[in-house]
Design a protein around this nucleic acid. Structure first.
Length: 932
DNA sequence: CCTGTCACG
DNA sequence: GACGTACGTGACAGGG
């Protein structure tokens, strides 16, 4: 039956798929010959997802992937500059283009292109024909140039955003219906395709004009009637250029096609052909996944003969097979493993426990791996998971070695200086084992290796690393434990299942270590790993185990006080609103403010809800009472729920202290992150919030001491950007913000006012963040032009800043990363992006060396600290980016401050000689509020 | 699970 | 020219 009513044609914009795949994925190469295949891999993934998502009731009857062919089209005949500003295709993408055609055919999807025509024209022609035949069309693309085709049964679908675009979608984008889109584009032009349009007219203005005059021809004929002189002149002067632009953007529905709609009928994939192609590309994970979907056996993909400098798994390794692992249930077997380990000199270690909280976690089993594929699991604390009576489940299962025997046997191995212990996030295992009296040293940590190598490229969790470097998806822990309320703990997992999961983790860890170890040198990350990452881990473990004492009574009293105040505020708010509603719901609050009370300035975000952030409410607060009350309520709600309530739940029942966890790989810049609870965001800026710090106390007879770096990031900026005036000021111990203000605004230091100083301070911080006129304007609440004038002035007075910013961005573009003074590399893959993402990436690149160098410095101090204060009755408890908090016996405060300060102030030495001094301020008291 | 909001450096 | 933008984090509540 010929294509017609009841049929549904899908047209996939192939080029868009390719470019999206290319930019979304790292530059993968085929292992056997180094052929770049990243884009092909992404392309196949997207096709696979497409096929999977489209076999329901609304499945297409016809489908084709449409590609561009050749760069010279009939549009270049009209206008030689058409698309002339396009950057050349990246070298490693070019060879992948024909492969994407092959991929499409392998999926048994029609694949169409025509010399001299753009994909858009083929799509247009097919859409028109299908529509005229009475069928439906979905164009899978988000390209705005295709929006003119929408309507009359033609829709678009943005596969990225999972978003259908119909007539309303087009109207939202262009302000006119699909039939007038070309008119708007003709006026607005298009910088991407180098369509000139009318100078000074954008989409908004163009839509306004078209809506007023009906269409482009009428508008051009009656241009004299336009009231605004500038616009009128532009249109009169550029008539020809506008008409040319329209011809350029108008898609051609008359492309002479050599095939018909009926040739595009959906065909079942031929599994063999598809598998053969995927195997040829050596896509291991994808081949497996698609084989599963098609319910066929995946073909074996031969490993290449030699392992070159590639980052993937070595060829001689056996596949990861959970059934191949050994379960240890007698001492003889354990002893023979220990002999193997001693002989080899290294072993991957992983512990299984009952909790993610190392302070609470009980050991359930230990696994060891010595070679890829050679791993064992020693079950120690497994209980009967099926027993549901309260008493039966406490009994240990049969066939497990006594915990103490195993620990005694392993202790000499774990503590042997000649045996390297390898872990993924070893801090966790070390903390658990420490509670059983075991030290783990020396060690390597694959998570930290990944971080030193690839910060900013990808995450550093085991699943990510395994998928990326071993092409293997580990058994999800969910499969064993379940999720949510019904989740069980690891001790209730059947031993046979535990062997597979746990030993696999050790196997993967060992393989990752074998992969990363040689890469450290190749990527010049050895020093960072050896001096900034590995030695910090045990220091953090120790700090976390100490914890900090928190007074539950203080928090509880504050919670009650907050609750009372909130109830009062809530009543007032409901009164002012005229009805009761959930004050904590931004959605309901927005409706109250802007719909019911009719306040001005309501702006809806992308979800369609009104924005009710603090900045919005602050503006409204000048006019009305309600938003001011809501702000007060929000502050209290935050303090109560996040701090006074939640912190109480984090007090360890055994120690009476709060034990945070530092994520060493948490921030791309080298900073730490603190979780469960986050002790790096305890309030300090408001009086009310600061009082929460009174709950953080020293043990009786002890004092809390806080030492923090003064202006460390600005000092680093002065050094890195080589700003003589700033460096001089720091050397002389001047008020740096006042100095900046004096320099910028020509005010003598003696006449400085707080307001002028405040502005200079905001600019100083802005520079660290990759300053923009917009950002500074918002921060200072001044007009943008004024903010920009400040910035210009700043650059004039401190020319080194401009140079630093430009050089840093250029470096990032050339190398794909920026680095700190200590050689830490922070990768900036987004720096090549187009659009708003480029701005983000630039500012992040400017900020990273500054924030990262500061992070490196305090890390160095922390690493040296335990030895420096070893003879003092003091413990380091917390780090808050530029601050260290200690607990010290009363009477020993000054000695501790002397020692710790000298470590901190000298932390850059001897690796880096800073042109500015580092200065550390100290405070002390019985609680954190006093000490800070 | 995502979004908005807000706490810190 | 238009558009959207300060850097880095984590936790909580609401809502689909």
């Amino acid at each position: 039956m010929a294509f017609g009513k009841g049929h549904h044609l899908h047209l996939i914009d192939g080029s868009a798929f390719i470019f999206r795949a290319y930019h979304a994925l790292p530059p993968l190469t085929r292992k056997s010959d180094g052929l770049p295949v990243g884009a092909v891999s992404g392309f196949c993934n997207m096709l696979q997802k497409y096929v999977q998502d489209n076999h329901g009731p609304d499945a297409p009857t016809h489908v084709a992937v449409i590609f561009d062919k050749g760069s010279h089209t009939f549009r270049n005949e009209m206008y030689p500059e058409y698309k002339a500003n396009r950057e050349a295709m990246p070298e490693d993408l070019r060879p992948q283009i024909p492969l994407t055609r092959q991929a499409t055919e392998a999926f048994n999807i029609a694949c169409k292109e025509m010399e001299g025509y753009e994909a858009d024209d083929i799509i247009a022609t097919l859409s028109c024909r299908a529509r005229d035949a009475g069928g439906r069309v979905t164009i899978i693309s988000s390209d705005k140039d295709l929006m003119q085709l929408v309507g009359g049964g033609v829709e678009m679908f943005d596969a990225m955003k999972n978003n259908r675009i119909g007539v309303e979608g087009v109207e939202a984008k262009f302000g006119v219906g699909p039939e007038r889109v070309v008119d708007v584009q003709a006026l607005a032009g298009d910088s991407v395709d180098n369509v000139p349009g009318a100078p000074g007219i954008g989409v908004k203005t163009a839509a306004l004009l078209i809506n007023e005059f009906g269409d482009l021809e009428t508008l051009l004929d009656r241009a004299e009637e336009i009231p605004q002189p500038k616009r009128r002149q532009t249109l009169l002067d550029n008539r020809e250029q506008i008409e040319l632009s329209k011809r350029l953007v108008q898609l051609d529905c008359e492309t002479p096609l050599e095939f018909t709609l009926d040739d595009l009928e959906v065909r079942e994939p031929d599994p063999e052909r598809l598998m053969t192609f995927l195997a040829e590309m050596e896509f291991r994970t994808l081949t497996k996944r698609i084989a599963e979907a098609l319910q066929v056996e995946p073909p074996a993909i031969p490993e290449p003969a030699t392992q070159e400098a590639g980052e993937g798994p070595a060829p001689e390794w056996p596949g990861i097979d959970p059934d191949a692992y050994e379960r240890i249930s007698d001492m003889k077997a354990l002893d023979s493993w220990i002999r193997l380990i001693r002989h080899q000199g290294y072993v991957a270690v992983d512990t299984e426990t009952t909790s993610l909280n190392e302070m609470q976690a009980d050991l359930v089993g230990i696994c060891l791996a010595i070679q890829p594929g050679q791993a064992c699991y020693i079950p120690l604390g497994h209980k009967d998971g099926s027993a549901d009576d309260l008493f039966g489940s406490d009994a240990l299962l049969e066939g497990q070695l006594p915990l103490q025997d195993v620990l005694d046997a392993l202790k000499p191995v774990l503590e042997d200086e000649a045996i390297l212990k390898i872990g993924q996030n070893m801090k966790y295992d070390a903390k658990v084992l420490a509670r059983y009296g075991l030290t783990v040293a020396p060690f390597d940590d694959t998570m930290l290796m990944s971080y030193a190598l690839y910060s900013g490229v990808h995450g550093h969790g085991m699943d990510t690393l395994s998928e990326r470097y071993l092409n293997h998806t580990p058994i999800p822990i969910k499969d064993l434990l379940g999720t949510g309320k019904s989740a069980i703990t690891f001790d209730k997992v059947a031993i046979d299942d535990a062997v597979k999961y746990a030993a696999e983790d050790a196997d993967i860890t060992l393989r990752l270590w074998l992969t990363f170890k040689p890469q450290l040198h190749r990527h010049q990350a050895t020093t960072v790993y050896e001096t900034l990452e590995r030695p910090l881990s045990p220091v953090l473990a120790q700090m976390e185990r100490h914890g900090i004492k928190v007074d539950r009574e203080v928090l509880s009293r504050m919670s009650n006080a907050f609750a009372q105040k909130m109830a009062g505020l809530e009543a007032e708010i409901h009164e002012l609103a005229g009805r009761s509603f959930n004050v904590g719901s931004p959605k309901q609050l927005g409706e109250i403010l802007f719909d019911e009370m009719g306040l001005e300035g309501g702006k809806k975000g992308k979800t369609g809800a009104y924005a009710t952030g603090a900045d919005v409410l602050e503006d409204l607060a000048t006019e009305h009472e309600l938003p001011a009350r809501v702000l007060d309520w929000r502050q209290l709600s935050k303090l109560k729920s996040t701090y006074t309530d939640a912190l109480q739940d984090h007090i360890d029942p055994d120690t009476g202290r709060v034990h945070t966890s530092y994520v060493q790989t948490g921030a791309n810049t080298g900073r730490l992150a603190s979780t469960d609870p986050n002790l790096q965001n305890i309030p300090v800026r408001t009086e009310e919030g600061r009082r929460i710090r009174e709950a953080f106390i020293a043990e009786p007879g002890n004092t809390l001491v806080s030492l923090d770096y003064s202006q460390i990031e600005l000092r680093i900026l002065a050094h890195i950007a080589d700003l003589p005036a700033l460096k001089q000021a720091f050397r002389e111990g001047q008020d740096i913000h006042a100095m900046t203000a004096s320099e910028m605004f020509d005010v003598p230091m003696d006449d400085m006012t707080p307001e002028i100083r405040r502005r200079a301070k905001a600019i100083n911080f802005g520079v660290i963040y990759g300053i923009s006129g917009f950002g500074l304007a918002r921060n200072l609440r001044i007009p943008r032009a004024e903010a920009q004038a400040f910035i210009d002035r700043y650059f004039e007075r401190f020319p080194g800043i401009r140079a630093y910013m430009d050089n840093t961005v250029a470096f990032a573009k050339e190398h794909g990363y920026v680095q700190t003074l200590f050689g830490r590399r922070i990768h900036t893959p987004e720096i090549a992006a187009k659009g708003p993402r480029a701005g983000f990436a630039k500012r992040a690149a400017i900020n990273a060396p500054i924030q990262g160098t500061a992070a490196d410095i305090i890390r160095r101090a922390m690493i040296r600290m335990p030895d420096a204060i070893a003879d003092q009755p003091a413990k380091m408890l917390l780090q808050v980016h530029d601050e260290l908090i200690f607990e010290v016996e009363a009477g020993a405060e000054d000695a501790l401050i002397d020692a710790a300060r000298s470590v901190m102030e000298g932390a850059a030495d001897p690796a880096v000689k800073l042109d500015v001094p580092l200065v550390v301020d100290a405070g002390q008291g019985s609680n954190w509020a006093e000490a800070h």
